[in-house]
């Protein structure tokens, strides 16, 4: 990512980058993780924009929840790309929130389907997205814990 180009900067800028430990989160399995999160961002954001701008009244709760999911995905992706300890912790918290959201909304859609005239990203534990929404936060947290 962009950092790799910056490390070759002129001497005297005193960035201290050479001595810093490798805090990158996008390496090895992290690359796959950031790719899947990126896909979810594109999917959830574009879907939310379309649904909220054209047919929000049909299922306001579902579409609002999808928008929240999109924001969470966007923030986690940004944190992963940014790297560093603070971003790692923030992403960890968001992954936990994401997992709680998937489980909560997933259960909610099963118990009270009448509240959801249309599906959200997290309906039925993310079945419409090959269950990636429920697998992703778990693998995300495992990866982020290992990078401590």
């Amino acid at each position: 990512m962009p950092e790799s180009a910056a490390t070759g900067s002129a001497p005297g800028t005193a960035d201290g980058a050479a001595a810093a430990p490798d805090r990158r989160l996008v390496k090895g399995p992290g690359l796959l993780l950031v790719w899947l999160y990126g896909v979810m961002v594109v999917g959830a954001v574009s879907r939310s924009i379309y649904q909220i701008s054209t047919e929000f009244d049909r299922a306001p709760l579902a579409y609002a929840l999808s928008a929240v999911a999109a924001l969470v995905y966007a923030f986690i992706t940004y944190s992963l790309v940014r790297g560093g300890e603070a971003a790692r912790k923030a992403a960890l918290v968001c992954c936990a929130g994401e997992l709680a959201g998937v489980l909560l909304v997933g259960a909610w859609t099963l118990v009270r389907p009448e509240a959801f005239p249309d599906a959200t990203v997290w309906s039925d534990f993310g079945m419409g997205y090959l269950f990636i929404p429920v697998i992703l936060p778990v693998t995300g947290m495992l990866w982020l814990r290992r990078r401590r």
Binding site: S4, V26, K27, G28, L31, L32, V34, W35, L36
Partner: peptide, 16 residues
Amino acid sequence: LSLTERTKWGSVTVAA
């Protein structure tokens, strides 16, 4: 993305 990660994880990402 796989160009930035010259390990098997680049291949996994393209497969995904």
